[in-house]
Design a protein around this nucleic acid. Sequence first.
RNA 1: GCCGGAGUGGCGGAAUUGGCAGACGCGCGGGAUUCAAAAUCCCGUCCUGGCAACAGGGUGAGGGUUCGAGUCCCUCCUCCGGCACCA
Length: 871
Amino acid sequence: MGGYFVPVIPQGVSTEPMEPTPSRQGRYDFNRIEKRWQKFWQDNKTFAAVDGDASKPKYYVLDMFPYPSGQGLHVGHPEGYTASDIVARYRRMKGFNVLHPIGWDAFGLPAEQYAIETGTDPRVSTQANIDNMRRQIKSLGFSYDWDRELSTTDPGYYQWTQWIFLQFFHHYFDETEKKAKPISELPIPTGLSEEARLAFIDEHRLAYEAEVAVNWCPALGTVLANEEVIGGVSERGNHPVIRKPMRQWMLRITKYADRLLEDLAEVDWPPSIKKLQADWIGRSTGAEVDFKIEGREDSIRVYTTRPDTLFGATYMVMAPEHALVGKITTPEKQAEVIAYREQAARKSDLDRTDLAKEKTGVFTGAYAINPVNNEKIPIWIGDYVLISYGTGAIMSVPAHDERDFEFATAFDLPIIPVVDPPQPEDQAMVRQGKQCFTGAGTAINSGEFDGLTTAEFKKRMTQWLTDHGLGHEAVNTKLRDWLFSRQRYWGEPFPILHTEGGRIVALPEDQLPLQLPHVDDYKPSGSGEPPLSKAHDWVHVTMPDGSQATRETNTMPQWAGSCWYYLRYIDPKNGEQAWDTEKEQYWLPVDLYIGGAEHAVLHLLYARFWHKFSYDLGLVSSKEPFKKLINQGMILGEDGQKMSKARGNVVNPDDVIKSYGADSLRLYEMFMGPLEATKPWNMQGVEGVHRFLQKAWRLIVDEDRGGLLDTVQEIQADETTLRRLHQTIQKVTRDTENFAFNTAISAMMILVNHLGKLKTRPHAVLESVVLILAPYAPHIAEELWALLGHSQSLAYEPWPQFDDQLAREKEVELAVQVGGKIKDRIVVAADADEDLIRATALASEKVVSALAGQAPKKVIVVKSRLVNILV
RNA sequence: GCCGGAGUGGCGGAAUUGGCAGACGCGCGGGAUUCAAAAUCCCGUCCUGGCAACAGGGUGAGGGUUCGAGUCCCUCCUCCGGCACCA
């Protein structure tokens, strides 16, 4: 990288020299300049990325594409977009073939909500919102390749979202190869009936239907994913959510849990985001253990991460929904158990997870046998045990698990300590069963295993269980399969048919896209029947054999379209396939992905999942889609509060652009502070960076007459100016590469302040200034570049090189401390050696008087920093 | 409760990662220019004392390591974000 190259102006560029904007009085007329250059870039397709250009290294800079809301942009959006645009423009000047696209994540609830309220077709409102947001985004001068613009709602796009779904449907996960394979290669046990064979196949598809207890939100009329439920209420709108069994489409993301976890090591993401993902996947290793039910042949299987505490299991708890509950409950406990189960089913997730509440449960009347010591222990049901995790049943070790301890205390169940804590101060209470201890220690009350450490005991017990056929090692994840259907209108229809015989069949690929039908009524039915079920003509289909079938009426969640949009950008118009694999090999992976931290888990996990699946199918060549990830921070209102319409503190970029221009807005967004930080808006700060641009303008332009100032001349820069220029190029280069845009701008301000003091200004220095400013404030830079006599866009001009020698200071000022306190400052040559520095420091009058005749014990010299004299 | 991140002037923030705390910008004060204003330019602006030179203090609180700590270690406080009975 680096070196020299011929600047390339993309095809279609105008050969007409660009004349500087004729401007009365030559003032910095940002509105005029910005419109003019935006038009130029558009007309000349200045930022068109060239597929497969082997003459340059490629660089793919991606923004998280926006939802086109009716509110339009707020100033939070341009923060990430400006950062990525600076990188894109900088990389072009560095000689990269840059792909920098934008599009619209346009399916989703707000448009549908609006449709329900007003009867407006979401296609219409969505298009209007896209048009408005496109206008806004264009007014910021981002260097997107607009020819690659896409919308997830476009049938030409969602055709391929549906196609990918079909691939999930047509594949299974091979456990030995740990990858997806065609369902036709699924090994099927022999001797199955036709019906059983088909059921076996359906059970292995990566996209499958299941009757699951889902998060049903009556207010929204839809099922929500676990991730969309925050603390028992819907993420959107804070409506209560209850559990309800429903037929749903699922994607088997859990099969990819290990790979999603392992491959985090490959990506350059903030460690905190990686950890969030790892915690979300929540992989744990433990053991599954079978507990015989007294007087029956069945046993209850539990999952535990602490097989070493088996001797302390004094009772068991099953989730209320557990299949065995009905079978094992004794007649006298029947009524109580049924009542409890009904109560639990009616509870919302909020009721069930509220921390403040007491543990509840009822005894089933049945007993199990602890396999390690043959003790008889009671079997309870309780809603603190989740049906969806592990086996839906637990062994309770109240001495060593907080939740079990609470439950045991509430119902007066026995507590047997089996782990002796290492801290002496905890031992007495724990040994008496009065305190719960969840850490590692030494085994007690565990028969032959006494004295083992927790870690050792875990291994030994797992082996013992295996040897005796009572259990085995097991792995669990918190990650659940992805609930992939929604009872909404405004989403991708599933390319699936339900036959008269109750079979599920895939729509042939040549019938894609399956278009979303027009309907008159967007309201959910309230019972869970999706709006599409009302599109009678669309739903009912006659099959080639004359039989009847109905279409799937659920739609896909909003995440679907955003799972693969970064792949469509590389080949957005392809009608034959989702993307061309050669283009994929050229452009992928995404080199830099910028977006909000709110997508740290869901979007990024889902997209990684689809990418890995595509990898198994040979559709992509990299394991991970996004090499480097940066989260921009939130921008707060001027009052330091989160921006919201209700608070009335929303800042609209349109207004800022009107008063100060897009360059000022861009610059301010970057100058506010570190990209990742949360920071409050301040309109006076915009004014500040605007003044800086004014100064830069007046450095070059004669405001009275227009055109170049007479003071701009073809002269040699003086030594100081040259040094400051090279220092600035160095700093701006380094800071831009490190995404430290705020300090890069600060460095440019310092340089411009210096140049402003010069009576005559070297033309060549000003050119460099304009070039390093260009990624940050591209419009004014283009205009000044033209004024400096250039006839073509600077977008592909080589980035100025800095010269280390020229940037170096000749003299440096050092602080001289006596006993750590600064007494004087000395100036020495930058290359002065330690002896000279020491001698100069000791010769200082102030130092001599501070020493007051004492001989220095030691003199510490830190070159170009300070001298510390110890007495 | 658990897991992250952060606390630096009146404000946003900077500090080459252990070496002169407060760069740059905002705000504020003073001055120049102007009939006047806007704009622009110059000077000042961490706190305390002093007319000043200067002296002392200072990066959420307390302790520690070090010649030297905003930066490293321990304890605590506050704010922000995430998770939330995952056995």
